[in-house]
Amino acid sequence: MTISVNGVEAMLPSDPRVSLLDLLREQLGLSGTKKGCDQGACGACTVLVDGERILSCLALAVQYDGRSVTTIEGLGTAECPHPLQSAFIAHDGFQCGYCTPGQICSAMGMIEEVRRGTPSHVTSDITAEVIPFSRDEVRERMSGNLCRCGAHNGIVDAIATLLPEAAE
């Protein structure tokens, strides 16, 4: 029973009640993934599992046996940030910084979803093979990540830097 976290194998907890979020924060010392509601309503705990974004607070860790998890710590570091992390700084895509790791992980997953053609609520032609990027597409797809400081504009700006096709 192991799980790979940022490329490192970790033991799964013996108590099946432990969420993936609490495994990361309390047992593995990876507190970059945040707890904002513990009930799937805020997105602060978003991580990537096999490249797909999920809410780690609603995930029982034991369910993810053998899976590969990427957290904010696995994307980049303060010294050597991922381009998206740098873009968040450049565009002031946060204030308090608490929802930020979740926003960034969510955006990583979101970009892949669009590239593979997953439609969204604002996609006008859902039968289209290629979904055109727009700021509204980014907004809708990032709506599962709440930000109370109100950094929404900066977040969308930061994400748009990774999407040349989104430039209006």
Partner: peptide, 12 residues
């Protein structure tokens, strides 16, 4: 730019 930005975006 925020001086604490690098720490915040890295979850650190």
């Amino acid at each position: 730019t925020r001086i604490d930005g690098p720490l915040k975006v890295a979850g650190a």
